[in-house]
Amino acid sequence: MNLLQFYAHNSREALTLIGQHLFLVAVSTGIALTVGVPGGILLTRRPAWRGPVLGIANVLQTIPSLALFGFLIPLPFIGGIGARTAIVALVVYALLPIVRNTYTGIAGVDPAVREAGRGMGMTDGQLLAMVELPLAAGVILAGIRVATVVSVGTATLAGAIGAGGLGVYIFRGADMVNNTLILAGAVPAALMALAADGLLGLAERRLAWRAG
């Protein structure tokens, strides 16, 4: 049985898994964005926090993803079997690129531009909204892009802890040594990653400020 025949016979299940996969990526990236961008901004205002915060985020990033899913299962509130645990793990991975790029993007704004803004009487909020965020937008979006693409791949592991997604096919296929089943999960996940990369890359190029 080839891949197309497989989808023809299992279209409802396949669509459900694709939907679950998109849900996991969208929710986790959304949460990482809401926490990560303000977090990155905060680090530019509290330079002393930068070392510890980025250090912890870096260490979290080095935990093998399957192990992190495993560690989370026995924990109360954030753990257990299912989508919630998978989302917590995905948020952990998405945070670092977003926080780091928000910080780097804002810290990379020309100090003369910042001094001119302050010298003309802009408040910190005006400087942030009118100058720093627009100038850092390209770098911040690059971080969001990395986070999203990594999430699409990592979300396949959610299948291992009962959270659904395209990993279900991949794990089932690996157990049964069935390549068609593995591809049925891997191909749409790869296409999803490529699409996210392409779309966010496009937005990034439009936003990135071409400094003269």
């Binding site: 020309d110 003369a112 531009v113 910042r114 001094e115 001119a116 803004g117 302050r118 010298g119 003309m120 009487g121 802009m122 408040t123 009118m130 100058v131 627009p134 100038l135 400020w209 400094a211 003269g212």
Partner: peptide, 19 residues
């Protein structure tokens, strides 16, 4: 901030907003 809006300020690097 109010004080600074009432004083013109020019620096060597100019600091025009590139965007």
């Amino acid at each position: 901030t109010r004080l600074r809006r009432g004083i013109g300020y020019v620096i060597q690097e100019i600091g025009l907003f590139p965007h």
